[in-house]
Design a binder for these strands. Structure first.
Length: 892
RNA sequence: GGGCGCUUAGCUCAGUUGGUAGAGCACUUGCUCGACAAGCAAGGGGUCACUGGUUCAAGUCCAGUAGCGCCCACCA
């Protein structure tokens, strides 16, 4: 046992001072490294299975948001708990190069400096991005440490680390060799501003109020025409057919005829195709294979030409004839006008449809025909689907399983090439018609590497094992794969979680983690997700400055409901701040009263525990069980709640108040019994506080460590001390019942005082009347009751008498009287009693009705019926007593 | 077009096998009694969105309705 430091707890509590102290200590002592825990393993638990969790690597694009902070708080809470529980823990940190996102912010920065990436060239640009990474990566690093998370920093990874990059490129080659990666000209989501292809997941669909333009296409060698409806009239310049449904009798005669594209005056065939819905629009569809995914497929079926009419910036090209050089939206306007002028526009209808936008810059996506690399996903998804169905991967909350499966079962191929410079350059080499997939340049001259880089997620989907040194057969891979848990936001379930599961199954033969826990999405007051791009997240560092890291951590976890979003309001951080302060002061009180006894030498068996002691130990055992159970099921908010209320409302509000009268100064000690009782109170107060600090540590690591060190403590650091176990021997239902009665009695007296405006400092006489066994109990508990209720003389009215004029209340089977003739306001007291009685009557009626119900008596569980009977008797007795009290006041 | 979530105190939200409705903030009243005013004590405030069903018993389970929000989908 180490002595506490009595100088430590200065007033007032200053989080900044405390929080500056411990992080370096933990790091120096290697607490964060696997095996850094010296906590004894709980008996019966295998120590060989480590607890492994990786940090979802934040983007290097900027600073963290409150959303990140929630994730970090949740993860670290679980990690610290597991570490204290005796598991070897690995928490692996890192960062993501975040391809497009970073690319864009650096490009923006260059633009602000009057430079452009194409001017400075690829190498110089990449250098700029690395410089940016150093700057902002450093900021994120500082933020993460400030929150107090406990990862093994020596294993920090970046997705562009040389070894990691090699793993990424190796995976490309492996999948290519297996035929799961292919290159081809297909319609992709193209962002004309970023000038790159995107995956389906990187496109945000936005309901947009647009128009449906009905355009008349003349039929060749006829004076008739066919009308088609379109939302993007500018694409007509790339039309290569008109399609109708084969079942649509209106158009049967037209199939095989030739139509003329207005303005372009190009002749195109009219074909029958199953993709056409006769009920939509006119039932005739213009086909633009190079600018629409559906039309592309139709085009293949009918062997239609593909005419690309725009360049990579969304500007109309030579194929657009008179409209060349116009931006696509300007072209739309001009084309509509030209159609109208020429009499080809039949009508315009308002039309709401969803339009794809680039999730990075908001630009309207252009379906664009281009040569890209793809991953064939269905074969990879199969194992991921099975893993979830067989329960190898479980989601918390479980409803996400359905979302996951739905996406996986309808998975589409993944476009992984990006026309950017920041990222893993595609390991493919070309020379004329030759193409080689290789991590290094092929032998010989004239080879030119693919210009594109890979989608960021093509590297981060390997995170659970590439961070461990894979594909090398490292001991880390051996020991730490699969990981134990993934904690992340549901917003990246497809981007990342699903793909990690697929990659794990494919390359490691096993899902990367058995559990996925989704944290709340943190939203602002308007319900918008907090994000860097919106700039609606408070600065985490500022929040921690203002409230303390402990407070921010605790509050975020305390507030996060399992499976629901979290509407963040800065004011809520006070909850954590005030709680930390409360714990500080409670510890200060206990420390002041501990004296110089070596509590480590005290044996529980040698102590005579009072009722209050047995009660708090019982409540403590219960709290440990409750908190641990909630942690195990990832209901961290419930765990935080239980801890908060046990520590504050039971330990501070009641137990410490009970204990106060038992630890007087030495010169006030009357005899050995009093001395023993003082020692008992000291030991229990310390023991339970020690437990509270252990329970608190995962939530508030700094202040709990500080307080633990200030008190006598067993072991070097709280961070590696053992997680408390719930001791069955401490569970004491009788003590809980009896203290329950004491509390009710004390509250009743306090209430009588308050209602009658008796100053809190003034001691009052109290008389209690009731059955003998109740009075015996009151007598036995008097030492607990008297100081808390501020009673001067406690009279047990065994003769059944009551003061003539008194305020009264009913507690259990007893009546409590405040005999204060002349002091109490009789009218107010009468009104209060009447109101009480009124409330009781309602409850009473309900209970009676229930117990008259034969079905209830026969079908409800016997203990429920018994409980109801007891309750009814209680209510009746109470009402009776209230009535007597009312009668007594009548004559006064 | 599918799927999911939410609707509980003035506000923001908890509520884990159905068994007397909870917290924080806000509000009222009173407290510088030897840890804490970032506090203590006492209190007011809710037909748990609506309708129906299952059940002895529903905030909790089922079905439907309304409003809000989210996700998915090749809505020319």
């Amino acid at each position: 046992m180490r002595p506490g430091n009595p100088e430590a707890l200065q007033q007032p509590y200053d989080p900044a001072r405390v929080e500056a102290r411990w992080y370096a200590v933990w790091e120096e002592r290697g607490v964060f490294k696997p095996g850094g825990s010296d906590a004894p393993a709980p008996s019966g638990k295998a120590t060989t299975r480590p607890f492994v969790i990786t940090m979802p690597p934040p983007n290097v694009t900027g600073s963290l948001t409150m959303g990140h902070l929630l994730g970090e708080s949740v993860r670290d809470c679980i990690v610290r708990w597991q570490r204290m529980d005796g598991r070897e823990t690995l928490y692996l940190p890192g960062m993501d190069h975040a391809g497009i996102a970073t690319h864009n912010v650096v490009e923006k920065k260059l633009r602000a400096e009057g430079r452009a990436r194409h001017q400075i060239g690829r190498d110089a640009f990449v250098k700029e991005v690395w410089a940016w990474k150093e700057q902002y990566g450093g900021l994120i690093f500082r933020q993460e440490r400030r929150v107090g998370i406990s990862p093994d920093w020596s294993r920090e990874r970046f997705t562009l680390d040389p070894a990691y990059s090699e793993a990424v490129l190796g995976v490309f080659k492996t999948l290519y060799d297996k035929g799961l990666i292919y290159r081809g000209r297909y319609i992709v989501n193209w962002c004309p501003r970023c000038r790159t292809a995107l995956s389906d997941e990187e496109v945000d669909r936005v309901e947009t109020q647009g128009h449906l333009w009905y355009v008349r296409y003349p039929i060749k060698d006829s004076d008739r025409s066919v009308t088609v409806a379109t939302t993007r009239p500018e694409t007509m310049l790339g039309d290569t057919a008109i399609a109708v449904s084969p079942k649509d009798t209106r158009y049967t005669k037209l199939i095989g005829r030739t139509a003329v594209v207005p303005l372009a005056r190009r002749e195109i065939p009219i074909v029958a195709d199953i993709m056409v819905d006769p009920k939509f629009g006119t039932g005739a569809v213009k086909i633009t294979p190079a600018h629409d995914a559906n039309d592309f497929q139709t085009g293949l079926r009918h062997d239609l030409p593909q005419i690309v009419i725009m360049d990579e910036g969304g500007v109309m090209n030579d194929a657009a004839g008179d409209f060349r050089g116009l931006d696509r939206f300007e072209a739309r306007k001009r084309i509509v006008a030209a159609l109208e002028d020429a009499g080809y526009l039949e009508k315009v209808e308002p039309h709401t449809h969803s339009v794809g936008h680039c999730s990075r810059c908001g630009t309207v996506i252009e379906p664009y025909l281009s040569l890209q690399w793809f991953v064939k996903m269905a074969p990879l998804a199969a194992a991921g689907i099975e893993a979830a169905k067989k329960g190898k991967v479980k989601f918390f909350p479980s409803r996400w399983k359905k979302v996951y499966l739905n996406w996986m079962e309808n998975i589409r191929d993944w476009c992984i090439s990006r026309q950017l410079w920041w990222g893993h350059r595609i390991p493919v080499w070309y020379r004329g018609e030759e193409m080689v997939v290789s991590l290094t340049a092929p032998e010989g001259d004239g080879w030119r590497q693919d210009e594109d880089v890979l989608d960021t997620w093509f590297s981060s989907w390997l995170w659970p094992f590439a961070t461990l040194g894979w594909p090398e057969k490292t001991s880390d891979v051996e020991r730490y794969y699969p990981n134990s848990l993934m904690v992340t936001g549901s917003d990246i379930i497809f981007f990342w979680v699903a793909r990690m599961i697929m990659a794990g199954c494919e390359f490691m033969g096993e899902a990367p983690f058995p559990h996925v826990m989704f944290t709340s999405i943190v939203r602002d007051a308007q319900g918008r997700k907090m994000s860097k791009s919106l700039g609606n997240s408070p600065d985490p560092l500022e929040m921690m400055e203002r409230y303390g890291a402990d407070a921010v951590r605790f509050t975020m976890v305390y507030l996060t409901p399992a499976g629901q979003d979290l509407l963040f309001d800065e004011k809520r951080l006070e909850t954590g701040k005030f709680f930390a302060n409360k714990m500080w002061n409670a510890a200060k009180l206990v420390q002041m009263r501990l004296g110089d006894e070596d509590l480590g030498k005290v044996k529980e068996s040698a102590l005579t525990l009072t009722l209050a002691d047995r009660w708090i130990l019982s409540r403590y055992a219960n709290a440990v069980k409750d908190i641990t159970r909630n942690l195990k099921t990832y209901r961290l908010n419930e765990a935080a709640n239980a801890l908060y209320h046990f520590a504050w409302n039971e330990y501070c509000d009641w137990y410490l108040e009970f204990a106060k009268s038992r630890w007087p100064e030495d010169d006030a000690i009357a005899d050995d019994a009093a001395r023993d009782d003082r020692r008992t109170a000291r030991w229990v107060a310390w023991k339970v506080l020690d437990g509270i600090l252990r329970l608190l540590h995962p939530f508030m690591p700094f202040v709990s460590e500080e307080l633990w060190q200030a008190l006598p403590h067993d072991g070097e650091l709280l961070a590696t001390a053992a997680w408390p176990r719930s001791r069955k021997a401490w569970v004491d239902a009788a003590a809980e019942r009896e203290i329950g009665f004491v509390q009710e009695l004390v509250i009743a007296v306090r209430n009588l005082r308050a209602e009658n405006n008796i100053p809190p400092g003034k001691r009052v006489p109290v008389s209690v009347r009731g059955p003998a066994e109740t009075l015996d109990a009151v007598e036995r508990l008097a030492s607990q009751i008297v100081p808390l209720a501020r009673i001067d003389v406690l009279t047990l009215a065994r003769d059944g008498s009551r003061p003539a004029v008194a305020a009264s209340a009913v507690v259990g089977r007893a009546e409590v009287f405040l005999p204060l003739e002349g002091l109490i306001d009789l009218d107010e007291e009468r009104a209060r009693l009447a109101k009480e009685a009124d409330k009781l009557l309602g409850d009473l009626e309900g209970a009676r009705k229930k117990l008259r119900n034969v079905d209830f008596l026969n079908k409800a569980r016997p203990e429920i019926v018994e409980k109801e009977r007891t309750r009814l008797a209680q209510l009746e007795e109470t009402l009776e007593k209230l009535k007597r009290a009312q009668a007594a006041l009548l004559g006064a």
